[in-house]
Design a protein around this nucleic acid. Structure first.
Lengths: 139, 139
DNA sequence: CAAAAATATGCAAAAAATTCTCATTTTACT
DNA sequence: AGTAAAATGAGAATTTTTTGCATATTTTTG
């Protein structure tokens, strides 16, 4: 039950929060903007305010339920935090996103942070490019 | 002379552009938002419009003169492109930014992109944390 | 399980960041 | 210097996100 996740996060299990959480869990795209979430909820007939979506997503972020990203265009997109940190490889043409994790990179990052005496709270690696499909289209 | 850089980039050497370029070259902080640039110019008595600053920075980005970043807060900050790609280690308390480059990481990134068949156009790695100074302050 | 207390919601208004419009000015080229 | 092309500044407009507040929903507790 999703309401348990909310409770554990110290948040009341309200209808809008449950809906948003479910959407993030079930949506085909894992990376959604507040606007995306809002529209998707309207489409399935759920009547939530956009302000609530923003508020809830920020609360989810604070609670560690979701992760906020700022991709190239700068707007906030959110993905469910499944607990496994990963990096992102994004197609600038079609928007496809590949998630990956590389141990060598993670270790190097650690040692770089250590060398500079930083206590790391967060880190992200984004690679932008053109995916195989889009390469074919354009040639 | 900076006007040469502008000409080479296919941009007219106008006063606002020269001022902005100079500022980016001489500013103590290498990472500035449009607002920062605007205020800094006002302070030294240069009368430019904020819209111009935004326009010019975007043109500089397109021309490859500057690089745009979206750090944690999501707003656009710009740094002069000196031609040497590097990654960033940022203190979330005081805003200090350490630039670094790690060959191992770069190589791994390449091979990951290759594995997925992507043609990479751009990539960035941000690490957020608390710098040594701020760690001492808070303890 | 009803009533009170605590919190969340929706809406509209406000901020904040960025872009656009357009009349005027500046630059580049004879 | 004179003209065409391009850039600027000021403010309006957009876009994204946040806030204030009256109402509604949840949780607590008696």
């Amino acid at each position: 039950m999703e309401s348990k996740n909310l409770k554990q996060a110290g948040l009341k299990a309200t209808l809008p929060r449950l809906r948003i959480l479910q959407l993030l869990e079930n949506s085909k795209q894992r990376h959604l903007s507040a606007e995306d979430v809002y529209k998707a909820l309207l489409e399935i007939g759920e009547d939530v305010g956009l302000a609530t979506v923003y508020r809830v997503l920020t609360q989810f972020e604070t609670a560690g339920l979701v992760i906020r990203h700022h991709f190239e265009n700068g707007l906030s997109v959110f993905e469910l935090n499944k607990g496994h940190h990963h990096d992102h490889l994004l197609c600038v043409k079609c928007g496809q996103i590949v998630e990956f994790i590389d141990d060598t990179i993670e270790k190097r990052q650690h040692s770089i942070a250590k060398k500079h005496g930083f206590e790391i709270t967060d880190h992200c690696l984004y690679m932008y490019g053109i995916c195989p499909k889009c390469q074919k289209k354009n040639s």
